[in-house]
Amino acid sequence: MSALSHMSGSVGRLRAEGRTGVGVTRPGLAWAVPATVFFLLFAIVPLALVAVLSFTSWNGVDAPRFNGLANWTSLLHDPVMTQSVRLTLVLTVAGAVVQTPVSILLGVWAAGHQRNRAVLSAIFFIPLLLSATAVSVVWRAVLDPNFGVPSQMEWLFGDGNLMGSQAGALAVLTFVGMWQWTPMHALLYQGGARAIPRVLYQAAAIDGAGKVRQFLHITLPQLRNTMITSVILMLVGGLTTFDTVLILTQGGPGTDTTNSAFYMYRRAFKSFDFGEGSAIALVLVMVATLVSLAVVRLSGYDRMRSTSEGL
């Protein structure tokens, strides 16, 4: 009872402040309408429709027919689906593990004031300007077993059958992803490194810390928030990797690199089974949501602790 009166009291106080406060009134809900409408129309409504479609059998020609849980049970027993989720996670984790150290080193280096830094940074940045399709086509040509680099470097590549084994094909996908996306993450780290207060390094230098210790004990901890941002971007990007798979491996050899995004495309747009394609899309949405939530929770990103406390 007393809690209730306390609450109503505070609400009353808020209202009073809202009316009397000068220039601190909250913007009206009307301002949020355009964005909300677009979000509803282009994100929530399609998502809901996909959810509905996932309980139907639909070839895109006849009207969709509800078939209950048939798509879901068949996915549950589909070895390609189970494998695709595993491959999605493998590609995602491998991408993050390989790209993060390279991006940090490149980004921190690019944040300095060395000679030729600007020119080299511009060159490193080029892959990001190319479309994923162009990048994939180029790398396919470069890695051609008979006419590309492997044919000249047999001591390293053997017969050059990179796309013929699961491990080889996954390695190629990870490598090409790294080649393409490292520049963007390096850019993030460059910005992050530039924002680190100089006084920290000056103090450390006075205390006798060398370059390596400064990097390990100042730069890295100070980049924590940048790192979380970058890793989330990598994870989301990795979960939805599609274009490189389509062009480099077509999900093969066999189904050895068929990740969930590619499998969804295959079921929906190659086999014209939109019901099952929708179910796969929903699985991806769920996996992506869970992974993002987990990263945010585990990293403490939701609490947004500052890295400048005590400065």
């Binding site: 994100a43 399609p46 429709l49 899309a281």
Partner: peptide, 10 residues
């Protein structure tokens, strides 16, 4: 990209 394809599908 998922969202884009979901939109397309929807």
């Amino acid at each position: 990209k998922i969202r884009a394809s979901a939109v397309a599908l929807g």
